[in-house]
């Protein structure tokens, strides 16, 4: 009896959230119908003409669609790789620092960029990367020719990756640092007695202890292969770098909101959602099976 009233209360606690999710997430999902329609606003979703897979066919006939998938995946993969390696190395370095105050200060500072918006950061970045901006001025001290970073297809992706790493690396160290604290101190003591050098301890104790975490994070990031960073790119790109920088999300945004190709935009978005969904299920499955990690 008591148990039943508990369960009733649990439902009561969940209802507000569930209702909000229904209104703002589930209801709009019916809109994916537009992907299969010749959508006419006055007719709405219920009366517009159904065209089957036509929008998808048109999408694949566009030379752009291959480009945006390639861009999205390559940018996302570069970000994932750099986003795993840089914080890993940084956490190892930070772990070697002995002065507590110094360590604290560094941590406080490197976590900070994570909390800045891309709107703000892009504004600053654009200022820094113009021909007479900060970066080119520094290059000129070394006698280098100025570079037009934001309109260069050679530079645009590296800039996206670098600025993303710059924003997130500090924050991502948190998890590694946590894993580091869980290493048994007696391992290091034993190694010291055996005469292991600092580097040897790092390579044979610390790194292996962190590897499972790295692998786990890598697996979980599989779900992000189609997320290359909408807000960042939207605020940084220009037509000249569409070739290397236009991604699925920006493309959907442009075709849908600026060019009113509702069917095409929804179809591209749906394809992305579906593929991401499958990837995430796979990655969670892998994580559960091999790392016994359950996110929910």
């Amino acid at each position: 009896m008591r148990n039943r009233s508990f369960i009733l209360n649990y439902h009561l606690m969940l209802i507000p959230g569930a209702v909000l999710l229904f209104i703002f997430s589930i209801v709009p999902m019916f809109g994916v119908a537009i992907a299969f329609q010749d959508y006419i606003p006055t007719k709405g979703i219920f009366a517009s003409e159904w065209v089957g897979w036509e929008n998808f066919g048109y999408m694949f006939s566009l030379p752009d669609s291959k480009q945006i998938f390639v861009n999205t995946i390559s940018i996302a993969l570069m970000k994932i790789a750099a986003g795993l390696v840089v914080p890993f190395v940084f956490a190892l370095l930070l772990n070697e620092a002995r002065i507590v105050l110094f360590k604290r200060t560094i941590q406080t500072v490197v976590y900070l960029p994570h909390f800045m918006s891309w709107v703000i950061l892009s504004g600053i970045l654009i200022n820094m990367l113009t021909l007479d901006g900060l970066v080119n001025q520094i290059l000129s001290w070394f006698g280098r020719e100025p570079v037009m970073f934001l309109s260069s297809n050679a530079w645009f992706r590296p800039i996206l990756v670098a600025s993303d790493v710059w924003k997130e690396f500090g924050f991502s160290t948190i998890i590694y640092l946590a894993a580091l604290t869980s290493i048994n101190a007696s391992l290091y003591e034993a190694a010291s007695i055996d005469g292991a050098s600092r580097l040897q301890k790092l390579l044979y104790i610390t790194v292996p202890a962190l590897l499972p975490t790295v692998i786990l994070l890598a697996t979980l990031s599989l779900g992000n292969v189609l997320n290359a960073g909408f807000e960042q790119i939207l605020n940084l790109y220009n037509p000249l770098v569409y070739e290397t920088g236009d991604i699925i999300d920006t493309y959907v945004y442009r075709t849908g909101l600026q060019e009113m190709q509702f069917g095409l935009a929804t179809a591209v978005g749906l394809l992305k959602s579906a593929v991401s969904f499958i990837l995430i299920l796979i990655s969670y499955g892998l994580a559960y099976r091999y790392a016994n990690y359950r996110i929910f």
Binding site: V32, I45, G256, T266
Partner: peptide, 21 residues
């Protein structure tokens, strides 16, 4: 509930239906 919640996190109807709602 858990699956319901995760599903809404992973899947979306897109910008225009969201706006219309």
């Amino acid at each position: 509930y858990m699956w319901y919640m995760v599903f809404t996190m992973l899947f979306s109807g897109g910008l225009i239906p969201w706006y219309m709602t």
